[in-house]
Design a protein around this nucleic acid. Structure first.
Length: 878
RNA sequence: GUCGGGGUGGCGAAAUUGGCAGACGCGCUGGCUUGAGGUGCCAGUUCCCUUUAAAAAGGAUUGGAGGUUCAAAUCCUCUCCCCGACACCA
């Protein structure tokens, strides 16, 4: 009789139908024709981090795209012109690995994956709406603009070629990205990685450091604390002073940074990093030269793994040189500080040279080990040792003019004095380094530069873009792999591509054979999304003005320090180029957690705990999987997949299905009986309301309200819980009547017969058709297929439920309200109060006093009443 | 070590201008349905103790200890533990 809930039978059908009806066609084309936006609709841009073309869709993709999809559908039903696009991050090393492994070209591998993933994406039932205009970063129409942007950076002096310490595998003779190092070892050959100076391209992100910092107002946008704090720490802006030192007996000056100016009188020695370029000059000609050279060589040869292990071992050698201590000289008591080389001075922090004192635990340990003289300048009343005086508290001694003063009160004065004495200057030190953007690999955007022996580095003229990535390239690692002095980057293996005429002088020149980091590709893709084929600029400015900034940007927390910061950097750069008029590209950022395997571990093929979405969809249907991913945990949380819980969600959809199938029969029943009050008959609106269960109607409206605000807050789990409550209540209303009839009825066979008739009758006493539709509508973003099936088949609607308007919660005033009554803070009774009495404290209290339970605890003692209107009544007995 | 986020039943979790702790789901227990298994349906389910034949009533409870308040998961102080990021940061 009642059709079973078999989603597999209709989900595919609806997806076809939606495609046919153009339900999720890209708004871009209509926007171009000024059709949609012209209608005065507000836009809503939902963005999810673009997926990498790994080959197969996993549960993680479902998780990260489903929740934004629900928000997008919700916004659309609320009258927004929603742009919810997708693209593919298609360049990168995994393609090269797979290519080598499977003996297939990276391009072919990638494009095959795009095709496969697109098919899989479409089974998710999302409203992703740019399938005809998908951005794929490895296509020339995209990377052409990477090159254009690179040239702009070059033009503005923000791109430069330089040397930097990088991860280097001595065996493969190549630079490695951080993600290609496993426990300090090379991913390809398993040998330990060392740090090495390698020449490469950089972007001066440090010029934007201050603007990338998050202020107290979160830069006017809504981003998570974890991102804001994480990025600020990474930028690591620290205020301090830069002290100038002269080296005795040498014409040499260096500076050293200090964030604790109050200790500067305590410093007795200097430590320089082994990699520091000045080391060679310092030791030259001293009797410690040989020893130093051996030490430096040993330190430089350390692998990253070893360095991490030896973090507590401070070792060093004396250079034989002394620096003049400007503080001592200023006091008229000249003193010099020995200069040591040590592994605890870091080349990439400050100037790589430190003034050291007794007040820093590392300095202290080092001085003890090598018997270097120390001096203290901080006196403390507490028992903390001066070694741990990092909190800038205490009274100064041995500090010239400042002796006897409290540190926290004299810091500004001290800095002023240092500047005035020309000992040093105020300085902000940053942790952030310039961004290394070039890679000695094949599968990426070619750097649009030409090296001419005549003119030096020459940019490729804009009109010659794109510099195509040649297909015929030897990208397999051979005897002389990438990036080495002898070996060459793979692009250099294609001589025909490599050799060009210099655009400046016309003589023979060579192309830059490096490619751009894939993070470059993803630093601006959402701009390209709005005009994917635009060929006059990276994007159509008008379209960007109409559709951006992004309203919500969904993604993973692993991109806190990399991608999202680069993306903000590019936005600011675009702002400076006059391409956009804001500096933050996303108004809100939401970071999702991770769906773990059923065993609580990260899903991985080797662990055999991978959930294949295709299989789960086969068993339960798309709607169930979507609902489950929402319901299993909050979006930000990380937790295991549960086969049991998904069955529970499926049960819920099944119950919804049954209720509406019963509805179908009751509608049919009324239609065949014109004398009955047909709830579907719009000419008789009264009948609808009369027959409804008032409590259920109130519940429905509460549910609408709750679901509306929960979706807005991306709390899909509680939105679903609210809908489950609604269905529980609805079923109870239906079943209670049915149970009565069951009691009255006689034999078994008759119950079976009566069941549907009685249920039908009761359904018409529960909710009107109009209200039943409202519930279906709020469920629609979550379970788009099932709701559409019911919408069109049970209610006979012609147009998709997804084009209908989000229902408004009606204000329903409950007749009675339950007020808990406390005696001395403990709930003793619940009062059912007429809602019009609620404002009257005396009447409520009088009512409470009638309760036997309350009387028992009051025990005729004096009491004081505290009444919070409509919420609670507390009677306090002394 | 520094910074950030947390700690609530057997489990995933709800609840924040301070106002009935544990919504919703899983699991479990009992029952109905079924030849059996599953599905489905109905009832119960924070814990412990006390009184009771039972129904029920009382007590405790949001990592721990204090505090503010008529009232605290929520605010304050101290403390323990877990997770994440960065990490020899001068």
């Amino acid at each position: 009789m009642i059709a079973k809930y078999q989603p597999q039978e209709f989900e595919g059908k609806w997806r076809e139908k939606w495609k046919e009806e153009g339900l999720y066609g890209t708004p871009l084309r209509s926007l171009n024709q000024r059709a949609t936006l012209g209608a005065g609709k507000k836009k809503f841009y939902t963005l999810v981090e673009l997926p990498y073309t790994s080959g197969d869709l996993h549960v993680g993709h479902w998780f990260s795209f489903t929740i934004p999809d629900i928000l997008s559908r919700f916004k659309r039903m609320n009258g927004f012109n929603v742009f919810y696009p997708i693209g593919y991050d298609a360049f990168g090393l995994p393609a090269e690995n797979a290519a080598i492994k499977h003996k297939i070209h990276p391009k072919d591998w990638t494009l095959k994956n795009v095709e496969n993933m697109t098919k899989q994406f479409q089974t998710m039932g999302t409203m992703l709406n740019n399938w005809d205009d998908v951005v794929i970063t490895c296509l020339p129409e995209y990377y052409r603009w990477n090159q254009w942007i690179f040239l702009k950076f070059w033009e503005k002096g923000l791109a430069y070629r330089g040397k930097a310490l990088s991860n280097w595998c001595p065996s493969c003779q190549t630079v490695l990205a951080n993600e290609n190092i496993e426990n300090g070892k090379c991913w390809r050959c398993g040998n330990p990685v060392i740090q090495k100076q390698v020449e490469q391209w950089f972007l001066k992100i440090t010029d934007y450091a201050d603007r990338l910092l998050w202020n107290n107002h979160s830069n006017g946008v809504d981003w998570p604390v974890s991102v804001r704090v994480g990025q600020n720490n990474w930028i690591g802006k620290k205020e301090g002073v830069l002290i100038k030192h002269k080296v005795r007996d040498l014409d040499l000056v260096f500076e050293s940074f200090s964030a604790f100016p109050a200790w500067l009188w305590a410093d007795t020695f200097i430590v320089i990093a082994p990699e520091h370029p000045l080391v060679e000059r310092l030791v030259q000609g001293t009797k410690y030269e040989k020893e130093s050279e051996i030490f430096v060589k040993r330190m430089k040869g350390k692998t990253q793994e070893e360095r991490l292990k030896e973090i507590d071992t401070k070792e060093g050698v004396f250079t034989g040189r002394y620096a003049k201590d400007p503080f001592a000289y200023a006091q008229g008591k000249p003193a010099d500080m020995p200069i040591w080389i040590s592994n605890f001075a870091l080349m990439d922090f400050g100037s790589g040279i430190i003034r050291c004192s007794a007040h820093d635990p590392r300095d202290y340990a080092f001085a003890q080990k090598y018997k270097i003289e120390l001096k203290e300048v901080v006196e403390r009343s507490d028992k903390k040792t001066p070694v741990n005086a990092h909190d800038n508290k205490g009274i100064l001694k041995n500090s010239g003019l400042f002796t006897g003063k409290k540190i926290e009160e004299s810091l500004a004065e001290i800095v002023g004095w240092i500047v005035k004495q020309k000992i040093g200057k105020k300085h902000f030190n940053y942790h952030l380094r310039d961004w290394s953007v070039s890679r000695q690999r094949y599968w990426g955007t070619p750097v649009p530069m030409i090296n001419c022996s005549n003119c030096g580095t020459v940019p490729v003229p804009e009109k010659d873009l794109p510099v195509g990535l040649p297909y015929e390239v030897d990208f397999t690692p051979k005897g002389k792999p990438f990036g080495s002095a002898q070996g060459k980057p793979p692009l250099a293996s294609n001589e025909k591509w490599l050799n060009v005429k210099c655009p400046k002088c016309g003589k023979n020149a060579k192309r830059d054979a490096e490619t751009l980091d894939t993070f470059f590709d993803s630093a601006w893709y959402w701009f390209r999304y709005v005009s994917p084929h635009y060929d006059k600029a990276p994007f159509d400015k008008k379209m960007v003005k109409d559709l951006t900034p992004v309203d919500v940007y969904f993604g993973g927390s692993e991109h806190t320090l990399g991608h999202t910061m680069y993306a903000r950097f590019f936005t600011k750069f675009f702002h400076d180029l006059g391409l956009v008029d804001y500096e933050e590209f996303a108004l809100k950022r939401i970071q999702h957690g991770v769906v773990l395997g059923p065993d609580g571990n990260r899903m991985s093929k080797s662990k055999g705990n991978v959930i294949n979405p295709d299989e789960v969809v086969k068993e339960y249907g798309t709607d169930t999987v979507r609902m489950y991913l929402c319901f299993m945990m909050p979006y930000e949380a990380t937790g295991p997949w549960s086969d049991k819980t998904i069955a529970g969600v499926h049960r819920f959809l099944n119950r919804v299905w049954k209720i509406y199938q019963n509805f179908q029969f009751s509608i049919l029943n009324f239609q065949s009986n014109p004398n009955s009050q047909n709830p579907n008959d719009k000419s008789n609106p009264k009948s609808k309301i009369q027959n409804q269960d008032k409590t259920l109607v109130a519940k429905l409206n509460k549910t609408i309200q709750k679901v509306t605000s929960d979706i807005e807050k991306i709390k899909m789990n509680t939105a679903i819980a609210a809908m489950m409550e609604m269905i529980n209540d609805w079923e109870t209303v239906v079943n209670s009547q049915f149970l009565i009839s069951k009691f009255q009825s006689n034999p078994k066979s008759q119950i079976q017969n009566k069941k549907n008739n009685e249920t039908m009758k009761q359904l018409n006493n529960s909710l009107s058709v109009e209200n039943a539709k409202k519930f279906l509508q709020i469920l629609a973003p979550f379970a788009p297929h099932m709701t559409e099936e019911i919408w069109r088949n049970v209610f006979g609607e012609k147009e998709s439920i997804h084009l209908s308007s989000w229902p408004k919660a009606m204000e329903t005033v409950a007749e009675t309200i339950t007020i808990p009554v406390q005696v001395n803070g403990k709930v003793r009774d619940l009062l059912i109060v007429n809602s019009e009495l609620l404002i009257d404290e005396k009447k409520v209290t009088d009512l409470a006093l009638k309760s036997e339970k309350v009387k028992k605890y009051l025990a005729k003692k004096k009491y004081r009443a505290i009444y919070v209107q409509g919420k609670i009544l507390n009677l306090v007995v002394q």
